[in-house]
Amino acid sequence: MKISRRRILAVGSAGLVVTLLPLPASAATEADELIARFTDGATPGEGPLTITAPQIAENGNAVGVEVECPGAKSIRILAPANPNPEVCTVHFGPLAGSHRLSTRIRMAETMDVIALAEMEDGSFVQASARVRVTIGGCGG
């Protein structure tokens, strides 16, 4: 069969519609919905929040993650693709020497780990880090 240019375009654009439409829409809203649960619907901005994690984690059972945000009341860590996406929330008290925390988290698969900080004025700041996970760490 001779494949015409028109045919290639038709098949190609059909493929685009199928692959593009459902995937990014659902992936984006899931993380956004998760975040909205903690911000009372407010969209977090950008700020002095940093999240540090390895680019590649061979073992998802314990992945070192560090979050820091000067001026934050609390920082939450989220692993959106985990069965339990919430990881932990740290509240800084009067004797906190910095607004920094380092810990180890579980990751079921490759994903963007999200840090969400609540600032002194009640606003929210978000940052994320992509971690490629070779072996997932959530059992199941």
């Binding site: 059972n61 929330t89 509240h91 800084f92 906190a96 988290i105």
Partner: peptide, 12 residues
């Protein structure tokens, strides 16, 4: 208080 931390099952 220095820090308080709420922990969920996704901590290692």
């Amino acid at each position: 208080t220095v820090i308080e931390m709420d922990i969920e099952p996704s901590l290692a």
